[in-house]
Amino acid sequence: MLFFMKNMIRFFIAGLLTIALAGCEKDNITNAYINQNPDRLDKVSHEFKEALASSPTGWVMMVKSSLSQDVYTPIVLKFDTLTNKVNVTTVYGVTASTDSFFRIANGTGSPQLIFTTGSIMSSLYRIGIQASDITDHIYNVVSVSPDTLAIRGYRSGRVYTPEGGVIYKMFKRPADWSWADAGIKFDMTSADFRANLDNVTGELKVENLLSSTEKVLAFRLISLPANTNNSLRSYDPFSISRNIGTGGFAPMNYFYIEQYQKTPYLNTTTMVRSAPTQGHNAVSIYPFTSNGTNNANTNANATALKNRLETHYLIFKNQTRTGNNVKMEFEAYDQKGKVALRAFYDNLL
């Protein structure tokens, strides 16, 4: 018995020794890897910079707006890594002609992509969830591969929320996204564009590829008098005067859309009017106070139009004119940038 006890003490001491040795092992934290690779972050950020430059037509970020369930808003970012200028194109408005700058900083643990001056990117951050789920103008670079750049908002929004916003997997701008090229082709302020279109009742056939449903609307576009346009500008959340601190968009232009649903039949055949915004080759149905024009000072009709179309924007693909007949094709995209919805307009002339 005594012998057994003695052994037990020895085992106990040996056990303690092992614990002492093993227990301290994890304290051997060193900076060896970082010290031996001083240019580690330089390498990663250089890789990121090369990737940004590798798509001359730009990279696409698909952001989620609270306005749509499945349709995401595309943002096309064209980076010039020599001058550090970035060109931002999206559907909510036409990009201002001012320069916008970005920087790649080494950050602390990963490189950071920073939109350093006022641009559409800081506007979206500023405006919040109705336009996008962007929560910062500083992004950590999460991963870099030839076809996908993953970036993540440094902050996740307001104060006292965890670090890190949504992760965006940016992809190269698809070749057929010519709408994002410079030059506005969908332009209700141009008389040529309005010919046989302005105030002409046609049809818009909307195909939702996600729900495999189809509907046809009686549909007409109407240009706006300047005073109405100016009045809407004064309410527009994207305009600098209204929402100081944003910027990036040129002064907005609007037009009326009047519509009702023909098929599947709805028991309303009265045209409902709202005033969407002219985006970059896009119709932006972004409700704000007073652009749901049938009811003064409400956005109800703009919301109704957005709900009926099941998208908060329509990107203008092309226009075909044959004599007096005008046909136009529109699209909207899902989270991965695939077509979620198509719309075909015919002026029926």
Binding site: A96, S97, T98, D99, S100, F101, R103, A105, G107, Q112, I114, F115, T116, T117, G118, S119, S122, Y125, R126, H137, I138, Y154, R155, V159, Y160, I240, G245, T246, G247, G248
Partner: peptide, 23 residues
């Protein structure tokens, strides 16, 4: 300073960088 980098960020207040053509 007109370009915002992480050094500019404040903890609980938020500022937006100025537009270049105004700055």
């Amino acid at each position: 300073i007109y370009e915002y980098t992480p050094r500019i960020v404040a903890g609980n207040t938020f500022f937006m960088p100025p537009q270049y053509d105004k700055a």
